[in-house]
Amino acid sequence: MKREGHDDIEQTVRGVLRDALGLPEAQVAAFTADTPLFGALPELDSMAVAGVLTELEDRLGITIDDDDVDGDMLETFGALTRFAAGKVRA
């Protein structure tokens, strides 16, 4: 699989949030690194978190250990993208 750049990973994370949370395209397109996620998006409940993690695994070809999942990595769009990028490079 090709090495993905940060921008590619960020776009993938956007697409996952759009699909897994059913968010409008315009809303996810406006996400910045500081956009709060967990606790701020009513759509992001624990069931939705499971869908987000599984879609990230599928689309990025990574494996996420559920023990690595905490509030910090889901706090902002930037934090989630950094977490995903770290797994892609690992």
Binding site: D19, L21, G51
Partner: peptide, 11 residues
């Protein structure tokens, strides 16, 4: 298309 099975509401 969208992965409809992920959406938190029927889509």
């Amino acid at each position: 298309g969208r992965s409809l099975w992920r959406a938190s509401e029927p889509a």
